[in-house]
Design a protein around this nucleic acid. Structure first.
Length: 675
DNA sequence: GATTAGATTCCTGGCGATGC
DNA sequence: GCATCGCCAGGAATCTAATC
């Protein structure tokens, strides 16, 4: 039996077993026997019953010793184990690699219209090994000791949730040979992961930082320091045996990227392995469970039904409770037991992980599921259904009904608006060549704000101010500080209610008014007419109905209008907004990088490009065509007619010739011919 | 420029045929 | 009897074109 057992063990596992002492080997053997008490797998393999045809009960008896996958036929297992081997089939036309010959054949037929026998190739070859004599004579024990000493640089973040362990080459052999570097570090990395796995499930990835050099035929020398990353691997505490496999997979991924870099870059050579970053995070898989008491804040909302189940079928009971209403004790599980078979839970685990919710929805076509998380007072979506048929109730107007605008309060004029803009210079940045497979973007310069200007505009001319121009360091921080001071000043102004100023015209207007000047409805005894006055200027805005007068309030927010805020200026502001954490910051995101609008305190930043979709030059020209009288603030700031007329034209600014640290007070203009 | 639906490609397991 | 081969299909990932 033991001979047969040994025969069935994959070669790499067998090698590890052979390194054990006789006593340890027997311990492992007994453990295996206990896990396979019937010894069915091995006996039946001997008879061959399960080899060529599936067994009658469809039992998966052939287990992969590396990853634990089970198969009904030995042939499937053998094929599966190719995934754990170094066997690779490579397409000679495009470099595509796979572990299966039939897949490569299919690939070549489809992609290259080639029908030929494919040859098995060895695993990816290591990069050219450089001959260095230093440290070569070091004893293996010394190398291991040095490696352990050099790996200990560790950084953590997010309350120790993310750990970054940096491993450097221990000697020159490792430094100039990527394959050897991996081989030597594998034990260390595995040990680190096993340590972390004792406490938590983990996710990890590796990133190798190398220096590459290239000599062109004309003798020029080029250098780059690319990073090659693995994909993120997840290992549960029960799956420590997967670590070697995951490491091998990661190393192969890095090697493939490395080779592609060399292939695509034409002539790159490995100069030096700089560092390997091992990033490990704790992994807490989300899944439904059993009854937990709700936090007080959620309990008080009276809108959540918390089923009191003692099993792990929280998800099932929640779904059933949404389908069946019980007035008495709706949280009682017993109510829903008769309906258990009304939903298809085939293949769904308990406790149900988030990853299986979409499967549940597919099996139960009339049910859609949304799942939300709750942490530290915040509710956030965990799973949002993609189904669109759901039971959303939409009330359409009845035939003949007319929809009308009623939010008259939102038509009130904003008393203060700030118009702002930044000016930037470009600064050249150093960078390496991008990997053409990952990105074709080459960063060669960076936009750096050197100035801002803004104009405060008020409904009342008494509160107008000249434009504020700033040039100097920390432009964005100073911009926000200036605006916060403006906000404080405006708040003080708005807190004072100006007494009503009534002219003779207003008295006559009030006497003869029959309709509200806003909603155009006739006055009545209930909705009588009132003099609606501006609390900032004191002037009467019109004769309105009492309803509107009660609704209308001076908006608390101050719009800060920036042209193309979404596309450019928002990036500048967002990069520094973290320094104003004490302010209440809210955003309306368009995506992860762009924002429709955002607020800092009462300052609401909006993009005028979203309302006036043209360049500033076009907008200025259009307005100038109607007459220069529209430029009240500009003409006040620049009264000289020659200068004023120049400012209505599109200007040219030599950004690439500007130096950020220049003395702005002593500007020297270059003659036109220089450009 | 962003989003989305549909197409394409790859991975993997199941199955029966084939050859040694 | 066993290993291998070729094909198929479902699911996931990725790409592409249409649309807003």
């Amino acid at each position: 039996m033991i001979d047969q057992l040994v025969k069935d063990i994959p070669h790499d596992v067998l090698q590890k077993l052979q390194q054990l002492s006789a006593q340890d080997f027997n311990t492992v053997l007994q453990s295996v026997k206990q896990q396979n008490p019937t010894e069915k797998q091995f006996d039946q393999t001997t008879t061959g019953k399960y080899d060529s045809v599936p067994d009658e009960d469809n039992v998966s008896n052939f287990e992969c010793q590396t990853c634990g996958m089970r198969y009904a036929r030995k042939a499937y297992l053998i094929r599966h184990q190719q995934n754990h081997s170094n066997i690779n089939y490579e397409c000679e036309h495009c470099g595509f690699t796979t572990k299966r010959k039939d897949v490569l054949t299919k690939h070549m037929k489809r992609k290259h219209d080639v029908k030929k026998n494919v040859q098995k190739e060895d695993d990816v070859q290591p990069p050219r090994k450089r001959q260095r004599t230093e440290d070569v004579d070091q004893l293996p024990e010394e190398r291991v000791r040095n490696a352990r000493e050099k790996r200990s640089l560790t950084a953590t973040a997010l309350n120790d949730g993310v750990e970054n362990i940096q491993l450097q080459p221990s000697n020159n052999e490792e430094r100039y040979d990527l394959m050897l570097f991996f081989k030597e570090k594998q034990v260390d990395i595995a040990q680190i992961l096993e340590d972390r796995l004792l406490k938590n499930n983990i996710k990890f990835y590796m990133s190798v930082h190398v220096r590459m050099i290239k000599y062109s035929p004309d003798g020029k020398y080029d250098e780059a320091e690319p990073h090659f990353n693995t994909k993120v691997s997840t290992i549960l505490q029960s799956g420590a045996s997967e670590i070697p496999h995951e490491l091998n997979k990661g190393f192969q991924k890095i090697f493939i990227s490395f080779e592609e870099f060399i292939k695509n870059g034409s002539g790159w050579q490995l100069e030096e392995v700089l560092q390997l970053d091992l990033c490990v995070t704790k992994y807490k898989p989300l899944k439904g469970g059993s009854y937990l008491e709700l936090p007080t804040s959620l309990k008080r909302s009276n809108c959540i039904l918390n089923i009191q189940n003692l099993d792990n079928k929280c998800f099932l009971w929640t779904v059933l409770s949404s389908m069946h209403n019980f007035q008495q004790n709706p949280e009682n599980v017993e109510n829903y037991v008769p309906f258990v078979n009304s939903v298809n839970m085939t293949g769904i685990e308990y406790p149900t992980p988030l990853s299986q919710i979409s499967q549940f929805e597919k099996q139960n076509t009339t049910i859609s599921v949304n799942i939300f998380g709750y942490e530290e007072g915040e509710i956030y979506p965990l799973y949002i259904t993609k189904k669109t048929f759901c039971h959303h109730k939409i009330t359409l107007p009845k035939e003949g009904e007319v929809l009308e605008f009623k939010e008259y309060a939102k038509t009130a004029r904003i008393p203060f608006v700030i118009y702002a803009d930044f000016e930037c210079l470009t600064r050249k940045v150093d960078t390496c060549h991008p990997n053409p497979n990952m990105s074709s973007t080459t960063t060669y310069q960076q936009m750096e704000p050197y100035s801002f200007g803004y104009q405060r505009v008020s409904i009342d001319k008494r509160y107008d101010k000249p434009p504020v121009i700033y040039r100097g360091p920390d432009v964005v921080e100073n911009f926000i500080r200036h605006l916060l001071e403006e906000e404080k000043e405006i708040r003080d102004i708005l807190s004072r209610i100006e007494p009503m100023i009534i002219t003779e015209y207003d008295k006559l207007d009030y006497k003869y008014a029959k309709k509200c000047y806003v909603c155009k409805k006739a006055f009545s005894s209930k909705n009588y007419k009132v003099k609606e006055h501006d609390h900032v200027t004191g002037f009467i805005r019109g004769i309105s109905c009492n309803n509107y007068n009660l609704q209308i309030k001076i908006p608390k927010f101050i719009p800060v209008v920036i042209h193309n805020l979404k596309g450019f200026d928002a990036n500048l502001i967002m990069s520094k907004i973290g320094k104003f954490k004490e302010q209440d910051i809210t955003v309306i995101p368009h995506n992860k990088e762009k924002y429709m609008s955002f607020s800092i305190g009462n300052l609401r930043f909006i993009d005028s490009l979203q309302f006036l979709n043209s360049s500033l030059a076009t907008l200025t020209k259009n307005l100038a065509d109607e007459g220069q009288k529209h430029f009240n603030y500009l003409s006040k700031t620049f009264p000289d007619p020659d200068v004023f007329s120049l400012l209505l034209r599109k200007g040219v600014f030599p950004m690439i010739m500007s130096i950020p640290s220049r003395n702005w007070k002593n500007l020297v203009y270059h003659p036109k011919k220089i450009f």
